[in-house]
């Protein structure tokens, strides 16, 4: 299919004797929101790390729009068009909100050391364009990042806003694919619903998203498709409702007995 954005092709990653990800294959199509679920230790984060360049798969391949990205460094993967957020917030706390987003554009800017030393007109033009773009990105979170907050340090934001800022930073890389690692972790139900709405808005704006999530409301509400993993293997894939009711998935979460009582 021509609209395949990401193609993970029987990827395997072994740590010593442990197969953290075992012969995993899935595809993500343009404009889709796909959720990756599974109990702790099921290999979700390792999958993210394989895609984003932290690890190189032992075997198998990862293709972005048909081009292999396996074994590239994180910055190279980023340059090819995959941005990510982190399970544990990783913001640049002592930098301003605006700077955080601008760092996200680092790989998209060209100014070299001479330009930067002398602030050449070329560099200034580029900088202006970047600031404009960053404003537009921050404006996608209505009411959360008013102009007055742009120059405040990221550490001064509330927790939920910091999570939003991390998404904004990832958007700054103009990604073809956005990886969100538990975007609503630690949020209250109200905030979760708002972030869910924003993820839907991102989809409307044409973004393709792969996210790890535990919050079933968000998974059900936002995703087009769900992939369930356990012990590094794909258990089930399909519409959210079907996957949630899949006996194998229920068993992975609750164990044998739990599955019996649930059914």
């Amino acid at each position: 299919m021509s609209d395949v954005v990401l193609d993970v092709h029987s990827a395997t990653k072994t740590f010593g004797g442990l197969k953290a990800v075992n012969d995993l294959s899935f595809q993500i199509h343009a404009g889709e929101i796909v959720s990756l679920i599974g109990p702790n230790g099921s290999g979700k984060t390792t999958t993210f790390n394989l895609i984003s360049g932290v690890y190189e798969p032992d075997s198998g391949d990862v293709l972005l729009r048909g081009e292999s990205i396996a074994g590239l460094r994180p910055d190279q993967v980023y340059a090819r068009g995959i941005s990510r957020t982190f399970q544990m917030l990783r913001l640049f706390s002592n930098m301003s909100v605006m700077e955080n987003v601008l760092v996200g554009m680092h790989g998209r800017t060209q100014a070299n050391i001479i330009d930067c030393m002398f602030h050449t007109p070329r560099m200034r033009r580029e900088e202006e364009v970047c600031v404009e773009k960053a404003r537009a990105i921050l404006a996608q979170f209505p009411g959360r990042f008013p102009e007055s907050r742009h120059d405040q340090p990221a550490s001064s934001l509330s927790y939920a806003n910091r999570r939003r800022l991390e998404i904004a930073r990832a958007l700054a890389g103009e990604p073809k694919l956005l990886l969100l690692d538990e975007p609503v972790a630690g949020m209250n139900p109200m905030e979760s619903m708002e972030v869910m709405q924003q993820i839907r808005d991102l989809k409307e704006a044409g973004h393709t998203i792969l996210m790890i999530e535990h919050d079933m409301k968000v998974i059900m509400g936002a995703s087009d498709r769900v992939i369930a993993m356990d012990h590094g293997v794909k258990l089930a894939e399909g519409a959210p409702k079907d996957v949630a009711n899949d006996p194998a998935v229920v068993e992975a979460y609750l164990g044998r007995r739990g599955a019996d009582t649930a059914s």
């Binding site: 740590f15 953290a20 230790g41 984060t45």
Partner: peptide, 10 residues
Amino acid sequence: ERVSHIAEEF
């Protein structure tokens, strides 16, 4: 080194 690179969850 491989041990240290294992994600926390493992």
